[in-house]
Design a binder for these strands. Structure first.
Length: 479
DNA sequence: TGAAATGTTGGGGCG
DNA sequence: ACGCCCCAACATTTC
């Protein structure tokens, strides 16, 4: 290969410069580097939801600036990935392409086809792992199969099989000669207009620097009490790294290394931090299971659930989406999601349980809503976590485990601060009753300025009977 | 990474 | 002093 033939780095869900082996490899070739992002809305790959598109817009802007600082220029192109790559190869004389692997079936199929096509044209392609601690196919049971239960999976996968050290950032990027055409980012319309509903998203800082700040803040302050603090939605007790991880603005190897460093400094907090690592483990586990069962976006892992009598309930679904179910903790979560593109994990479980078990609405409907509204929407995590709640998934919560939204609220939001924040019409109620406004006497409600059914909905369903109905449906599956 | 129903135990009130 | 009942507290099981 001539020294002047460029190498293309095809960015996808690895929007960072550090610990990016595809970029490091390309930069190490000593040839001009063409960083590329393709907006491909024609592929079988599921199109990002509205919240994800908002994030992608900012993340690409940040990546573009970071690349400029190294002397390079991020090229933006829109269209079928195979065609765009072929065009760019023809335009620039590139003789190599580098990328980080994706693991969903549609992306794998696309990438395999692209690799074959480019190889045929004499372009050398190489892919790398930037997204996972372990490749999904590398973790194997004693019998050589794949795992479906988390604990034994994590026992195996937690131990580093190889080098888990993150790599650094390349120095200068050698720019290609000539001017390579690039779309203006704004022309992709990733940011919402008419209306711009993203006002509540402004606390996020998409991009590699924002991800690093988030990790540093977490390790300095929150991590040492993670196991106890993570379940309190009123408190910032989680890392909130999920969107950064999804877009690859930070990688799990970097988090792993940073946590090890921090844990050494604070011996006492090891169990707390171990719980956090376990959450990374669930992310790995989800990708592992999803890789080995690629049709789980539509199919139950446990096929017994194929016969489950899901209900049609347009009104209930609308109430759930809008945060108007009459169950304060559910409504608070759904409104936090709508406003900020994120929901605290404890509340995700409660809200998801409510949709699937109380309303008996198909988990796929909930999955689709989360996909559209979450900034951290990730196919493997979203699909498998929904199946986990529904009871159809891997190592799933048994179906009869039905969350009681009142008890969950009282336990995890004891003072009602989370509800008060996101359901302000209930803010005047004391914490002792804020999770069950229907039990507050009319005079007290009036005093708090709440008229049931006007300011705040009367519960759309009776939880006790809904629970019984769901359990009866579940029993029907067994027989 | 549940909740409710059911079972068991033991302290205290009481005749 | 003793048996009986009540019931809170905790444990177990069931869904």
């Amino acid at each position: 290969m001539p020294d002047s033939a460029p190498v293309i780095v095809w960015f996808r869900q690895d929007l960072r410069l550090r610990d990016n082996p595809a970029l490091t490899d390309a930069a190490g070739l000593g040839r001009p580097v063409i960083p590329l992002y393709i907006l491909d809305e024609t592929a079988d790959v599921r199109r990002p939801g509205a919240a994800s598109r908002w994030w992608l817009d900012k993340s690409l802007r940040a990546l573009g600036k970071d690349i400029e600082a190294l002397g390079g220029r991020l090229i933006l192109r829109r269209g079928p990935a195979a065609r765009i790559l072929a065009e760019l190869v023809a335009e620039t004389g590139a003789e190599a392409v580098r990328w980080s692997r994706l693991y969903d079936a549609a992306s794998v199929a696309r990438d395999v086809a692209i690799k074959a096509k480019l190889a045929k044209a004499g372009v050398e392609c190489r892919s790398f792992n930037a997204a996972l601690l372990n490749e999904p196919w590398e973790v194997k049971t004693g019998a050589g199969g794949d795992y479906r239960v988390f604990t034994p999976y994590w026992r195996t996968a937690r131990a580093p099989a190889g080098d888990r050290a993150p790599t650094g950032r390349p120095g200068k990027l050698r720019a290609p000669a000539g001017n390579t055409g690039s779309d203006p980012l704004a022309s992709w319309s990733l940011h919402p207009t008419a209306p711009d509903w993203s006002k509540g998203f402004e606390d996020w800082a998409p991009g590699e620097a924002g991800a690093q700040r988030r990790l540093d803040g977490f390790l300095d302050d929150v991590a040492c009490r993670y196991a106890t603090g993570r379940d309190k939605p009123a408190v910032a007790g989680t890392s909130q790294l999920s969107p950064h991880l999804h877009f690859g603005e930070i990688g799990p190897r970097q988090i792993w290394a940073a946590v090890q460093g921090a844990a050494v400094r604070q011996q006492a907090s090891h169990p707390q931090v171990e719980t956090f690592l376990e959450e990374l483990g669930w992310r790995e586990f989800n990708h592992h299971v999803f890789y080995h069962h690629p049709n789980l976006t539509g199919q139950n892992l446990d096929s017994a659930f194929d016969a489950f009598p899901w209900r049609e309930d347009a009104e209930g679904l609308m109430a759930w989406r809008r945060g108007r179910t009459g169950f304060p903790i559910v409504d608070a979560g759904m409104r936090q999601l709508w406003a900020t593109g994120w929901m605290h994990n404890r509340v995700r479980m409660i809200a998801a349980s409510f949709l699937v078990k109380d309303l008996m609405i198909d988990w796929r409907i909930g999955e689709a809503w989360f996909w559209d509204t979450l900034v951290d929407a990730d196919l493997a995590n979203n699909v498998l976590n929904w199946q986990w709640v529904a009871g159809s998934g891997a190592d799933a919560a048994p179906y009869f485990r039905v969350f009681n939204p009142t008890l969950q609220g009282r336990t995890f939001d004891p003072d009602g601060d989370y509800v008060r924040r996101w359901v302000p019409e209930l803010a005047g109620l004391p914490g002792s009753v804020i999770h069950e406004p229907w039990r507050v006497p009319p005079e007290a409600l009036a005093k708090a300025g709440v008229e049931p059914g006007v300011d705040y909905p009367i519960p759309i369903i009776d939880h006790v009977s809904a629970r019984k109905r769901a359990l009866a449906a579940y029993r029907g599956l067994r027989s």
